[in-house]
């Protein structure tokens, strides 16, 4: 079990690397676009759509990872209450599991929408990249996010000791 948790942790570095690389490219792209436009009056025409794609890649590469590591922004007024009652962990596990399960519906619908974009032949304006690739990526990563949260929920409920050693 421990080794699986460690493997998952290691695996989660891959999407983070993708997000990091994309972010760097986005920075350089924006810089190059401004310089090209200001000095040579020759902006990178596809910059806008590339930026949009880059954003989707950054957000949805990092999302499963931060979800699996329970790094969502959490605010809980009631926390101290449950802390005293000693049910904090169970509640936390249940909520995380529920979030994961609830996310399955939008994830599946995103696949439908990707399919729809394909059937209508939607393309990006300048580079004519099929829109459904991007939508499909978002759908897939949403599904992975759902799985990561559900898994974390289950582990929190039944095997909390695994969370400490190798954060899933």
């Amino acid at each position: 079990m421990k080794s699986i948790a460690r493997l998952l942790h290691r695996l989660s570095e891959l999407p983070m690397l993708l997000a990091a690389a994309t972010l760097f490219v986005l920075m350089v792209l924006t810089f190059a676009d401004v310089i090209m436009r200001s000095t040579f009056s020759a902006p990178i025409e596809a910059a806008t759509e590339l930026t949009r794609i880059a954003m989707a890649v950054i957000v949805f590469s990092a999302l499963p990872v931060i979800s699996g590591r329970a790094e969502h922004i959490v605010v809980d007024l009631l926390d101290p209450l449950f802390h005293r009652a000693g049910v904090e962990r169970v509640l936390d596990g249940l909520i995380t599991l529920a979030c994961g399960v609830l996310l399955v519906w939008p994830a599946l619908r995103c696949f439908d929408l990707a399919d729809r974009a394909r059937s209508y032949g939607d393309l990006t304006e300048y580079l004519a990249i099929p829109v459904h690739y991007i939508t499909w990526f978002i759908a897939f990563m949403t599904l992975i996010t759902a799985a990561a949260m559900a898994l974390r929920g289950v582990v929190t409920l039944f095997k909390p000791d695994l969370l400490g050693g190798a954060r899933d």
Partner: peptide, 9 residues
């Protein structure tokens, strides 16, 4: 719809 917003479609 503004058709131009969906290239390819």
């Amino acid at each position: 719809l503004f058709n131009g917003y969906q290239p390819g479609r």
